[in-house]
């Protein structure tokens, strides 16, 4: 433990606990990898595959929205896009549940695109 304190001002009672609650959760986000439980290779592979699928699904969904906003699609096409993405969303949730994965397990930080979920 080294370095100057970064705390400039703190609460009257000096209790800092409420400001450190996130620490265990944040630690996981540090390495921008998907960590798989080594004891469950199947789940690890599922996590890998589902993350890629989710990534592509999100990119396509965002692009579909841009196309809809931009005009140039027929009402029928827009309808079909909407229904398809709803179906995909539902299907992803089923797959996640099947492999015991939480939404957070697929949540990549994509930089300029924000977080995946």
């Amino acid at each position: 433990m080294s370095g100057k304190s970064k705390v400039l001002a703190g609460p009257l009672d000096g209790k800092l606990d409420p400001f450190a609650r996130e620490l265990p959760h944040l630690g996981k986000a540090l390495s921008r990898r998907i960590d798989a439980d080594p004891e469950s290779v199947e789940q690890g592979l599922a996590q890998l595959v589902l993350t890629i699928v989710e990534l592509l699904r999100q990119l396509m969904e965002r692009q579909a929205l841009r196309r809809i906003d931009g005009g140039g699609l027929s009402d029928e096409q827009i309808e079909r896009l909407g229904t398809t993405f709803m179906e995909l969303d539902r299907r992803m949730e089923e797959l996640r549940e099947h492999f015991g994965l939480e939404a957070e397990d697929l949540n990549l930080d994509l930089g300029p695109l924000g977080k995946l979920l």
Binding site: G3, S5, V7, G10, A29, L108, G111
Partner: peptide, 28 residues
């Protein structure tokens, strides 16, 4: 103090800063 500062640091490292081309590493 160091712990709460770490929360503030991590918040910035993970959500702030200029975003240049990013890279993602997928691992199993």
């Amino acid at each position: 103090e160091r712990e709460v500062a770490l929360v503030d640091l991590l918040d910035r490292l993970l959500g702030g800063g200029v975003v240049i081309a990013g890279e993602i590493t997928l691992a199993v």
